[in-house]
Simulated scan of single mutants.
Amino acid sequence: MSNVPPSPTNLRGAVDLSGLVNRPAGPAAPAAAPSAGAEGEQLVLPSLYFEGTDANFNDFIDLSMTVPVVIDLWADWCEPCKQLTPILDRVTADYAGRFVLVKVDVDANPQLAQAFQAQSIPAVAAIVGGRPVQLFVGALPEPQVRDVIEQLLQLAAQNGVTGSVAVDGDAGLPAGAEGAEAAEPAPEPLPPLHQEAYDAIERGDYESAMKAYRTAIAQDPRDRMAVAGLAQVSLLHRLSGRTIDELRSAAAAAPADPDAQLAVADLDLSGGHVDDAFDRLLALFPKLGPEARDAVRTRLLDYFEIVGVDDPRVVRARARLASLLY
């Protein structure tokens, strides 16, 4: 696969789960997961979907010796999480046991949230052969989620994790989800322009999505969701059709070229390397002329919206930017 997001094999800073490895297993994890799996081994589990907790996560680390375990870090208050959840559910079902999906409520499981450095959600990671891999941050459209899963399965195969899961029971719903529609109210619909933008993102039509978000902002400049959505879809649009090697080679060949550095900073941010993206642009900023400085400042403000203005990394970067401006 040639387009971003980056291949998991190139991701740095994978989280350290060593503090969880020796925790006692709790309920609601897959039963009898082996500590190591033979090539092509098939396990029988009650579902492809599980709820991960601080107490039971050790069992999923064991399971990752046989089949990749994808981790969805979410929270009930997170609107982009609600956009990503049905995409992950569909993709998991379509891959029919080549990986399992573990959903982690970061509010209820602070140790896991800290282990995966989940300062911005939704965030998606994986465990392969007991080792953590960062995948992406934010609600990506379905085609890009599928690309990331393909890369993850390639990485798993390279590490001998080639097992699969056969479901004993209802494979069509997450574990414990039977009757959920009756037990829980349906989520509130998105505002019309937000829904229009989301549908366009699903189709890969980033220009239409940006137009919808700009219209929403024109109607209500205080619509923070639209501002953040516009920043995120603009990032996706800039990266569309660009290859990882192309972007990194151009940046390495021209360290003082603001366009090349902005492009690779986009790549860093899309892969979850928030501090790397900030550091790259903030280090470049003092070396630039007024026009290029303005472009970098505008891009950083977009990044702040994508990551979240209250995120500690944003607070630090905003302070550094202010010191450079004044």
Rank of each mutant, 00 (worst) to 15 (best):
A123L: 06
A123N: 11
A123P: 01
A123C: 08
V124P: 01
A125P: 02
A126M: 09
I127D: 02
I127C: 10
I127P: 04
V128K: 07
R131N: 14
R131S: 15
P132G: 15
P132K: 10
V133F: 14
Q134P: 04
Q134Y: 09
Q134M: 15
L135D: 07
L135Y: 05
F136K: 05
V137E: 07
V137I: 15
G138H: 06
A139R: 04
A139I: 08
A139Q: 07
A139N: 10
L140R: 12
L140A: 12
P141G: 07
P141F: 00
P141Y: 06
E142K: 13
E142H: 09
E142W: 11
E142R: 14
P143C: 09
Q144S: 12
Q144D: 13
Q144R: 15
Q144C: 00
Q144M: 15
Q144A: 13
V145Y: 05
V145W: 07
R146V: 14
D147S: 14
D147V: 10
I149V: 15
I149D: 03
E150C: 05
E150I: 02
E150H: 11
E150G: 14
Q151M: 13
Q151N: 13
L152S: 11
L152P: 08
L153A: 07
Q154Y: 01
Q154D: 13
Q154V: 14
L155I: 01
A156D: 07
A156G: 09
A156H: 01
A156S: 12
Q158K: 12
Q158W: 00
Q158T: 09
N159D: 09
G160L: 04
G160E: 05
G160K: 00
G160M: 03
V161Q: 01
T162R: 03
G163H: 05
V165N: 06
A166C: 03
A166F: 03
V167F: 06
V167G: 08
D168R: 13
D168N: 15
G169A: 09
G169I: 12
G169F: 13
D170V: 12
D170E: 14
A171V: 07
A171I: 06
A171P: 15
G172K: 13
G172S: 15
G172M: 09
G172A: 14
G172L: 06
L173G: 01
L173P: 04
P174A: 10
P174W: 08
A175M: 14
G176L: 03
G176F: 03
G176S: 04
G176C: 00
G176M: 03
A177W: 10
A177H: 09
A177R: 04
E178R: 11
G179P: 08
A180H: 10
A180W: 10
A180T: 06
A180I: 14
A180P: 01
A180C: 01
E181M: 07
E181V: 06
E181R: 11
E181N: 09
E181P: 04
A183Q: 13
A183F: 07
A183R: 15
A183N: 10
E184Y: 11
P185T: 08
P185V: 06
P185F: 05
P185K: 06
A186P: 01
A186F: 05
A186V: 10
A186M: 08
P187W: 00
E188H: 00
E188G: 12
E188Q: 14
P189I: 04
P189A: 11
L190F: 13
